[in-house]
């Protein structure tokens, strides 16, 4: 390819090229002015009589939904009984390059799963939306499929979302959950005064 050829007379004369340019712009102009506005957010699929494909969107009246795989705001996935699937394994906090996940673990006294997050907080301001937490979770307990982004806030502490705020959306079950839901055998403890098996137990679940 040789891009640099000298301009011929017509080109040097401005006018020819100017008219050509006007042509391009006029096409866009008429399309935008008269084109039938199809509010379909998917611009490429806009249909309509006459000229379609007006490529702008009247935000905020028209909004484009985030695509299905889009990494949006986090949510903690509930089990069918409404409790978080999360078992406070800290994998997400470990994988997170922004170190924005804070977890404190506690113990269920009556369930095979034993461990759950007493506190689970995500600082959405620190989050870089990389999705590594979702990838790292071995329980499918954290997802970014809310289809929305972290909302704007008026002060930094408000960007820290706690467990209650994050626990939302449809419950999820996996066939492999059966294994963790079974009732464990428990032999009577040798120490009747045993109490909880971990220190600092929180029983308010």
């Amino acid at each position: 390819m040789k891009p640099t050829t000298d301009l011929d007379f017509g080109e040097r004369f401005y006018l020819r090229e100017a008219v050509k340019g006007m042509g391009v712009i006029a096409r866009h102009f008429w399309k935008n002015l008269l084109g039938f506005r199809d509010p379909n957010a998917e611009i490429m699929q806009r249909k309509g009589p006459g000229v379609n494909m007006v490529s702008t969107m009247n935000y905020p009246e028209e909004r484009k939904a985030y695509p299905p795989g889009y990494r949006g705001m986090h949510r903690l996935v509930p089990r069918i009984d409404g409790k978080p699937r999360c078992v406070a394994c800290y994998m997400c906090a470990t994988a997170c390059p922004a170190q924005c996940i804070y977890i404190e673990a506690g113990e269920y006294d009556d369930q095979a799963i034993e461990k759950y997050p007493v506190r689970f907080e995500i600082d959405e301001l620190r989050c870089i939306v990389c999705g590594f937490c979702v990838e790292a979770c071995p329980k499918d307990a954290i997802r970014m499929d809310t289809g929305t982004h972290a909302p704007a806030v008026l002060s930094r502490p408000l960007a820290v979302f706690d467990k209650e705020a994050l626990l939302q959306g449809p419950a999820v079950e996996h066939p492999s959950d059966l294994m963790t839901y079974r009732v464990p055998l428990r032999t009577p403890s040798a120490d009747p005064t045993a109490g909880p098996t971990s220190r600092g137990d929180v029983k308010d679940h």
Binding site: I43, M44, S55, K64, Y66, P67, P68, G69, Y70, R71, I128, V129, C130, G131, F132, M144
Partner: peptide, 22 residues
Amino acid sequence: IEARELLWDRIAELCGARVTVS
């Protein structure tokens, strides 16, 4: 930018983010 937006939308669908794709 109109052309770039079209492509970034495709990238968002493919990778889950427009710019910070990782």
